[in-house]
Design a protein around this nucleic acid. Structure first.
Lengths: 198, 198
DNA sequence: TTGTAAACTATACATTTGTTGAATTAACCA
DNA sequence: TGGTTAATTCAACAAATGTATAGTTTACAA
C-alpha cells in the first residue's frame, strides 16, 4: 500500500483514484446492499484496476470507513450542544440528503460498518467531553466511560430506528432519548430539570 | 440445508455433528482469533466434511450464533434483577469460566458477532420489560426503545471494557453504569434514590 | 431385522479475495 | 522540457467461500 489513509501531499492520481472509487461505491449502493457489492465491481465502474484498489484500501470496509471519516469531519462542525441533545435529528438530517440515504442504510445493515461509525462517534464525543472537563465541569464517571455508554445507547437506538423504517419521528426519538439519559451525565450539578418526579 | 437452526426431533447424527463442530471451533478459538479460523479447519478438527458444515450453518458466524443462543438460554435463568443491575458482573462471571474466556474475546473483536449478541440481549431485555409492563409498571417510553437504548449502552461499555483489558473491576463498571443510567427507566415512580443532588 | 429416508461423504466447480513481481504510464519538479 | 519517482496496470497465483450433483452410510422405526 502506497499511502494508506494518510496522504500528506496527495498526488493528483491518488486523489482521483480515491474519488472515483468512492463515487463508484456510492453509485452501486443505490441499487444493491453493501455485502452484495464486490471489489471487482467497484473497480470496474471506477475504471481503476483491482490491484490499485488494494494499494489504497485493505478492503471495501476501509474504503467506506475512509469516506465516513470525511463526512464525519463535516458533521463535527455542528455545535456541541446540537450533537449532544439531538443526535438522532442530526443523523436524520444527514439521511435526508439524497446522496446519504443509501449510505446510512448500508452502514446500518453491516455490523462492521456500524462498528466503524460507533468508534468514530465515540472518539468525537470523547474530545468534546475532554473539552468540557478542561473548562472545569466535574464528571462523576470517567469521560471515556460516558462516551462509550452514550455512543452505544444512541447507536443502538438509531440502528433500531432505521431497521424498523423510522416508526416515529426523529424529534420523537430525541425526546425519548432525553428521557432515558440521566441529566447528571452531561450537565452535572446543574440538573435542575431532573425528571425524577415526573 | 437439511434442518437449519430448528431441529424438531434431532437425529443422533445431527446432534453429534453440531456438537463436534462447536467443540472444534471452541478449541480453535483458544489459539487463534475468530477471523483467522477457516471453515475448513473447523471441519478438519471436527472430522466432518465441509459440505456437511454448510448443510447445517450458512457460515461460521451462524455456528457461533447458534452456540451463543444456547449459552444465553442458560444465562436467562438468572434473576431479572441481577441481569439488570449487574450486567457487567454477569458478563464477567461468564468470562471467568475458562471455556468462555476466549469465546467472549472472539465475540468482542468481531463486529458481526457483537451484533448477534446485541440482538439476543435486546430481545431478552424486551421480554423482561414486557413482563413488568403487564404487572402494571408505567413506562414513560416504549419498552422497545428502552431495551435498545440500554442494550446499546451496556454493549458499548462492555465492549470498551474488554477491548481495554478490563482496566477497572466489574463491580466498578456496574457502579459507573448505575450512575449513568436514569433510575426512572427501570423503576418509574419509585426513584427515591435519584442521584440528582449527589 | 430390514427398508427407507436422512444425513453424510466425495468430487468438482465458479467466485471472490488478496498478493506478488514486473512492465508501463503519468504527475511533478528542477 | 525532460528526468525521476511514484502511481498505475497487467498477468498470474493461492486460498477460502459457497454450491451442485451424485454416491454412500447410518439412524430409526415398522
Amino acid at each position: 500500500m502506497y499511502t494508506k489513509e494518510t496522504a500528506p501531499k496527495a498526488d493528483l492520481r491518488v486523489k482521483r483514484t480515491r474519488k472515483l472509487l468512492w463515487e463508484s461505491l456510492m453509485s452501486l449502493l443505490e441499487s444493491r446492499p453493501f455485502d452484495a457489492i464486490t471489489v471487482n465491481e467497484i473497480c470496474e465502474r471506477a475504471m481503476v484496476h483491482r490491484t490499485t484498489f488494494y494499494k489504497h484500501f485493505e478492503d471495501k470496509i476501509h474504503l467506506m470507513s475512509h469516506g465516513l471519516q470525511e463526512i464525519s469531519l463535516r458533521y463535527a462542525e455542528e455545535s456541541y450542544e446540537d450533537r449532544i441533545r439531538r443526535p438522532i435529528q442530526m443523523f436524520q438530517k444527514l439521511g435526508h440528503l439524497k446522496q446519504f440515504r443509501s449510505l446510512l442504510q448500508a452502514v446500518n445493515d453491516n455490523p462492521a460498518l456500524k462498528d466503524v461509525m460507533h468508534r468514530q462517534g465515540a472518539e468525537l464525543l470523547k474530545t468534546d467531553l475532554l473539552e468540557l472537563q478542561k473548562e472545569g465541569r466535574p464528571f462523576a464517571v470517567p469521560i471515556e466511560v460516558i462516551a462509550e455508554f452514550y455512543t452505544g445507547a444512541v447507536a443502538g437506538l438509531g440502528s433500531w430506528w432505521l431497521l424498523n423504517d423510522m416508526p416515529v419521528s426523529a424529534e420523537q426519538m430525541d425526546e425519548y432519548l432525553a428521557r432515558l439519559i440521566h441529566p447528571e451525565i452531561f450537565f452535572p450539578g446543574q440538573a435542575a430539570d431532573c425528571r425524577c418526579e415526573e
